[in-house]
Design a protein around this nucleic acid. Structure first.
Lengths: 205, 205
DNA sequence: ACGTTAGTGGACGCACCCGTCCACTTGGTC
DNA sequence: GACCAAGTGGACGGGTGCGTCCACTAACGT
């Protein structure tokens, strides 16, 4: 059990970290987080010995939100609608939080808490994709890489001015869905994505 | 006229800068470029007093390539085909060079050589877009922002393993083109992009 | 109320980058 | 071959972030 003041400081550090990660990405310094939280560096390091420990904790909520989005999408009786919802929601989530996609995508094998979650999430997304293809919603030549690209692109949105970031994210998601929709005007996709093998080589998919 | 050995060093510095910018983005330090070129810091600073001067020079070729792509696209008698080509070629260009999009997008008003070129390029892209819409190739609700998003997304490709980066870029570009193609299955795009006003507020478009 | 001990902020040593300066080297010229 | 100015590498002071240490503070149990 933590002493009351320590608990308080811990919370303030987490709040500061979340705010800074969201608005400026994972690049912010530990010092800066400590300053924003109004504590000294020692306090920060005592609670979170490594940057990764702080990142893991700071994004735990986001990760849960992310899992919930995927879960909801997967349990939609119409898999194509579920897929579209997932794309849209994840894009909005990303656009709000600059650090989260970074943390999620660059998760380091054996180094942090994201790896296992990521593997599980992506496995479910693959399954959802297959089902969405089966009902002729999602284009036949879709692969997981294409979704990853869309999510990575969403990162760019997080540097837009904050006022209408969500609106921009929804617009972008709509575009992405149109790109992935099965249609007889679709140009055939050339082979050649490799992002997922790169991102997932560690995750055992 | 530069002394022979000085010219030699200058060339080596530029080569090193190009290589490092391409593979690691604009974040590399001046020191590191100097080390890679096998010269001291003083030599680097003598030739390129500021980082921006080096960036400008290092990307001059890329910038020309970029302009040529847009020019070719604009002079295509079929504007929609021209537009598609531009998307594809620019995406490939981006995927090859991690630093270029950064330099191009984050160009600082009054601070570097990219601003004027950027404004001119984007103006031409706007015009091409309008023409591509007129022939029912490009979707009606397209805006410049959508293209910028695609290009930003392409940056993500530059961190993929290098072997098939180009293939991945072409695949992604094909997806993007499908997203932007006019079709009766297009979902209506919600309003709300704002990237271009953000990127271009300084460029006088 | 008071002692104990977890908790704390600030200071420290280290490493890195920055941009500049200076004494030496060396290419080009006579 | 000898001169000399352009050219050079390395060293320097200033700044910042890192992770750790330590003497003080104050929360909690009695």
């Amino acid at each position: 059990m933590l002493r009351a003041d320590a608990q308080d400081n811990r919370d303030r550090v987490l709040d500061a970290a979340r705010a800074l990660f969201a608005e400026r990405g994972l690049g912010v310094t530990m010092r800066e987080i400590a300053r924003r939280a109004g504590v000294g560096p020692a306090t920060l390091y005592r609670r979170f010995p490594t940057r990764q420990a702080l990142v893991d904790e700071a994004f735990a909520d986001e990760l849960r939100a992310c899992e919930r989005i995927v879960e909801d999408g997967c349990s939609d009786p119409d898999p194509w609608r579920g897929f579209r919802t997932v794309v849209e929601e994840l894009t909005v989530l990303n656009s709000r939080n600059r650090g989260f996609v970074d943390a999620f995508m660059s998760a380091n094998p054996h180094a942090d808490a994201f790896v296992a979650h990521r593997a599980a999430l992506l496995r479910r997304l693959v399954a959802l994709g297959v089902r969405a293809q089966a009902v002729d919603g999602l284009r036949r030549d879709y692969e997981l890489d294409d979704l990853l690209l869309v999510l990575m692109a969403g990162r760019g949105l997080a540097s837009a001015p904050s006022q209408d970031r969500t609106a921009a994210a929804r617009r972008f998601a709509t575009l992405a869905v149109d790109a992935l929709r099965a249609s007889d005007t679709n140009a055939p996709l050339p082979r050649g994505a490799s992002l997922s093998t790169y991102v997932l080589s560690s995750a055992g998919i």
